[in-house]
């Protein structure tokens, strides 16, 4: 294993939570999860030589993960939008998940892929400028979209 490979593997291990997060928010099928994990790894590895260190590795990996997941051919979503939230009753979750987290998860999964990307980055602490930089939207557009997404999420979560 070369120094670059060792360094890359260590960084990926340290930051793989980002990949899991993106996969969990975008993918519905166990095979897709593994495929996508590999795909993100592969794309990150191929682009790593061009990682210039101007941004944090985690920000760069977020970009690679989101860009890969958005353009990756996935199986169609098995859960129809609204179906889950409407039927969501807040009963005891065998996995120990709280109502809030489950409701937010389902609400985020109902958003469009781009909106999902925006809110995920926002909730993870990225500012509008960074989100605009990653997504290619203008800063104003991000702000407008974010406002609407938050409104929609709050409304959905209140309903439940």
């Amino acid at each position: 294993m070369t120094v670059t490979e060792k360094e890359f593997t260590a960084l990926m291990r340290e930051n793989r939570g980002i990949i899991f997060k993106v996969i969990r928010l975008y993918v519905n099928h166990p095979e897709d999860e593994q495929d996508l994990f590999q795909e993100i790894h592969l794309q990150a590895w191929r682009s790593y030589t061009r990682f210039n260190g101007l941004s944090k590795f985690s920000t760069w990996l977020y970009r690679v993960s989101l860009n890969t997941v958005l353009t990756f051919k996935r199986r169609p979503v098995l859960v129809k939008p609204d179906e889950n939230l409407e039927h969501y009753g807040g009963t005891h979750d065998p996995h120990g998940r709280t109502e809030e987290s489950e409701a937010l998860y389902l609400a985020i999964r109902e958003l469009s892929e781009i909106d999902r990307m925006i809110i995920t980055l926002h909730l993870d602490g990225y500012d509008n400028e960074e989100i605009a930089d990653i997504s290619g939207l203008t800063k104003n557009n991000v702000a407008v979209k974010l406002h609407r997404i938050k409104e929609a999420l709050t409304k959905k979560l209140k309903v439940n």
């Binding site: 969990r24 993918v27 166990p30 999860e33 593994q34 998940r97 709280t98």
Partner: peptide, 17 residues
């Protein structure tokens, strides 16, 4: 809710290798 979600739901996928 996001913090809870990260801890409870956005973990390692089951089929992860």
């Amino acid at each position: 809710a996001w913090k809870k979600l990260e801890a409870e739901r956005l973990e390692k996928p089951a089929a992860w290798k």
